[in-house]
Design a protein around this nucleic acid. Structure first.
Lengths: 199, 199
DNA sequence: TACCCTGTTGAACGCAGTTCAATGATATGT
DNA sequence: ACATATCATTGAACTGCGTTCAACAGGGTA
């Protein structure tokens, strides 16, 4: 048993994750460089590869944590939300927006790692995604009680994707000129309008 | 006057754009490599830099053409659409989806080039985007005649972003399991539900 | 034709991620 | 406690990328 070694590895692992997390948050995924990382962590470049398969593995680990924080924020928003299911959707979506705005580069990193074609998404990703979807589908089931679960699943995905799209393009300064308030406004507009329908 | 030289440059320019277009379409933006490009075009690597500032310039040129084709597809869909403004929105959004699906990597490249922070989006980008927005806001103005132009602009952006989000996440095989039909279904669901509201 | 000038070339540079032979530390058996 | 085998760690070196620039070649002009 390599107790001492395992401990050291665990420590290095933690240190690398923390540094990578800060680097990505401050300067984005592209600023994650092996040599800089090793320099900051006080280890050799090769040591990184003893602990992570490659830099993408490290970035994915950071992403898992980011996604978890995101989920926690949305959950908290839901916990403090009014009873009305439409308002619950709005509050959660705006929490999603707030998280994306306040953790812009970390949030971008969630989607900027390209998987090799055919490669499945990591487990934690699907799991966290499923959690988010549950938060959405519960109020939706109240709003649309007569729809079956397959339809609700589609509605859930459609609404999540819509909000994601609004936040994504809204935060992209390229197409410039969308204020935070306007993004929240668009979110509320789409969700309320969507749920207000008699059907 | 360097007529002969200018002609050669123009020819090289065209050749590079065509090769780059095919490369991006087949293997994505990351497959665009200076040496491969030079090899295929039968020129020196340095020659690329006589004609384009850098590879990003070339990729942006390809993007401009892709965006233009996209706009043309949407315009054609609108031209053949029924009179009903809601159906016009649906038809256009599904044309957007069809283009993205059939030109997946080229379409991805539109959004995968990261600009340096603070750098404005290119002119053609804003122009094509504006064109797309016009296609959307016209039917919207019919659907919501009492809204002022600022509100319509926000609605337009919100709907475009929503459809974009649905297509983006739908085509991402990672979250797997969204068929083409389901994507079209989600688009129609969101747009019809949105426009059906009495308000 | 001779000569300048400008377009073109591709080897070389800088900077990434990743590897692996050499080194050093650790755990085990006596 | 020591010797020794085993395994972790190191960082120089390798590969592959975009980009540059001194040297070269070929076209335009007198």
């Amino acid at each position: 048993m390599a107790t001492k070694t395992e401990l050291r590895r665990q420590e290095l692992r933690d240190k690398l994750v923390i540094i990578a997390e800060r680097t990505i948050a401050q300067d984005g995924l592209t600023a994650l460089r092996a040599r800089d990382l090793a320099g900051e962590a006080g280890c050799a470049v090769g040591a990184i590869y003893n602990v992570f398969g490659d830099l993408t593995d490290l970035a994915l680990t950071v992403n898992a944590r980011t996604f978890h924080r995101l989920g926690a924020d949305v959950a908290e928003a839901l916990a403090n939300a009014p009873e009305d299911p439409v308002e619950q959707l709005v509050v959660m979506a705006q929490a999603y927006h707030a998280f994306a705005a306040q953790n812009h580069l970390s949030w971008r990193a969630l989607f900027d790692i390209e998987r090799a074609p055919g490669e499945a998404a990591p487990d934690w990703y699907l799991q966290e995604m499923g959690q988010l979807f549950t938060y959405i589908s519960d109020p939706l089931a109240v709003i649309f009680p007569e729809r079956d679960s397959a339809e609700l699943a589609l509605l859930t995905r459609a609404l999540f994707s819509s909000v994601h799209g609004i936040v994504l393009l809204g935060l992209d300064e390229a197409s410039a000129g969308v204020s935070t308030e306007n993004i929240d406004h668009m979110i509320a507009l789409v969700l309320r309008q969507f749920a207000a329908s008699p059907k």
